[in-house]
Structure formats: structure tokens, C-alpha cells
């Protein structure tokens, strides 16, 4: 049961906006991975350009989903769910990656569809950053990552059996925990690793060589966060997932209206 975003007659416009979001996501992906295959002469340009363009494409994605395309109910759910996520983020305290925020984005995306999951990821991150002072160059990267996570949860295949669905989501939760760590590290890599060290990226070097360096960096720094995060996601999804998923679907169940004009005489 997904929220119907927008009206039927705007289907055409929606295809266009889906295309834009896909392109924006590709740009986002490049913004994470550019150090792997940047050429030596454009190294500095890529560094700053991607940093500047990431917020821009994030805003474009937000506009494409929200502008005239969200009904009141979806909007209220978006606001309330991202507040819940941000409130949970506060209690998770970020200790060793134990952030219940991912759980909420996954379940939200799963119950309300991939498009909603995408925007939920964006707004949850943004709202909590605005209130808790987490605004920095990394924000747009985090938002884009969260958006993909929400989208992915909605895009996973539909499964009838409730328990299999939870297993699937738990597996997904573990996977994205690792992937999120990987992507955020990738984004951090060119900034936090000084060129004066042997695990910095080398502009113009082969992808394989750069990947090797990156993984050393990743294993050395962030892996310790990924594993607890993955385990935490699995536990939350298994323990709370069925109930929360059920409640969300129950809340969305109020659906179609039938106006029966035959009897109205």
C-alpha cells in the first residue's frame, strides 16, 4: 500500500521527474566516487565542484519529489516520520553507529514506497541536522545516502509472507549499514587523508590501485563502526520491524473513496 503521490494525469510529468532524480542520483554517486578515477589535471576542480554540486543536486531531487507532487497526507507523514527519526537519532546518541534513524527510514520506505522512502531519507537527515547543528559539508552526502537507503527499501521485491519480508529487510539493513559506512568513508577520504600519506588517493592512478588504498583507509578507520551498525539494524528490524511496519500500513489503509451517485435521487 503506497501513498499515491500526485495525481494520475501527471503521470507524464512524474516520469520526467523520476528521470531527473535518477540523473541527480548518478551525479551524487560520482560525487562519492570521483577520487577513484579522477585525472591528475582536474583533481582540484573535481574536489571543489563535487562538494558544491552535491547540495544543488540534493535540492533538485527534493524539488522534483515535493513540488506539487505530494498530497497532504504524504506531507504530514513525511514531517511526522522525519521528526520521529530525528528524535530517535537523539537517543541513539550516535554511539558507535547505533543510530535507530536507519531503521525508521528503511521501514518508512518499505511501507510507503520507494519515492516516499527517497524523500523521507532526505528530510529526516536535514531536519535533524538543522536542529542539532549537524550542518556541514558532509550533510548533502548523508542526505543522498539516506535517500538511496529509503528508496532501496521500497524497491525491494514485494513478498507476501510477513516473516520472509522481515528477513529480507534485516538482510537489507545489514547490507546498507556496511554500504553506508563505505560511501561516507569514500566521501571523507579525499578530505581526511592528507596527500602526504600513503593511503591517499592518487589522481590519475588506476581505479584498482586507488581502491586498494581506499580499502586500507576504510579498514583502518571505519570498519569498527560498520559491524555494530549492521548488527544493530538487524536487531531493530527483527524486534520492532513487524509491529512498526504493521502500524504504518494500518495507518495508510484508509484509502479509496467510492461515490455512489446512483442512489442519490
Amino acid at each position: 500500500m503506497t501513498i499515491t503521490l500526485g495525481q494520475q494525469q501527471q503521470l507524464h510529468a512524474r516520469t520526467l521527474s523520476a528521470l531527473t532524480i535518477a540523473l541527480a542520483s548518478i551525479i551524487g554517486f560520482l560525487a562519492f566516487t570521483w577520487p577513484l578515477f579522477v585525472t591528475a589535471e582536474n583533481d582540484q576542480a573535481a574536489r571543489w565542484l563535487f562538494l558544491a554540486l552535491m547540495p544543488l543536486v540534493t535540492v533538485v531531487a527534493i524539488i522534483e519529489i515535493t513540488y506539487g507532487g505530494l498530497n497532504v497526507k504524504a506531507l504530514a507523514f513525511l514531517g511526522v516520520l522525519s521528526a520521529t527519526g530525528a528524535a530517535l537519532r537523539a537517543i541513539g546518541a550516535g554511539a558507535v553507529g547505533l543510530e535507530p534513524i536507519w531503521f525508521l527510514i528503511i521501514i518508512g520506505g518499505r511501507a510507503l514506497g520507494k519515492r516516499f522512502g527517497f524523500i523521507l531519507g532526505l528530510t529526516t537527515m536535514l531536519a535533524s541536522a538543522l536542529l542539532t547543528g549537524g550542518v556541514g559539508p558532509w550533510l548533502a552526502f548523508q542526505m543522498m545516502c539516506a535517500a538511496w537507503i529509503g528508496w532501496g527499501a521500497g524497491a525491494l521485491p514485494q513478498i507476501r509472507s510477513k516473516s520472509f519480508e522481515i528477513i529480507l529487510l534485516a538482510g537489507y539493513g545489514a547490507m546498507i549499514a556496511v554500504l553506508f559506512g563505505l560511501l561516507m568513508d569514500l566521501q571523507l577520504w579525499p578530505w581526511i587523508v592528507s596527500p602526504a600519506s600513503s593511503i591517499a588517493y592518487v589522481p590519475g592512478a588506476s581505479i584498482l590501485e586507488n581502491l586498494q588504498r581506499f580499502f586500507i583507509f576504510h579498514f583502518a578507520t571505519a570498519l569498527a563502526w560498520d559491524i555494530p551498525r549492521a548488527i544493530f539494524n538487524i536487531i531493530l528490524i527483527v524486534v520492532l520491524g513487524p509491529a512498526v511496519l504493521h502500524s504504518l500500513r494500518r495507518a495508510m489503509q484508509r484509502g479509496n473513496v467510492v461515490f455512489n451517485r446512483v442512489h442519490a435521487m
Partner: peptide
């Protein structure tokens, strides 16, 4: 052009402290 997103964010920034209290 960001009005909808702004409203969603206004709702959530208004509610975050509220939910922290609810917790």
C-alpha cells in the same frame, strides 16, 4: 518552489522536541 519541503521540515522541526519529551 521549496514550499512543500519547507512545510514538511517545519512540521518535523516543530515536533522533534515534542517527541523527545514524549519519549
Amino acid at each position: 518552489i521549496l514550499h512543500e519541503a519547507g512545510v514538511a521540515l517545519i512540521i518535523s522541526t516543530t515536533l522533534i522536541p515534542h517527541f523527545a519529551m514524549s519519549l
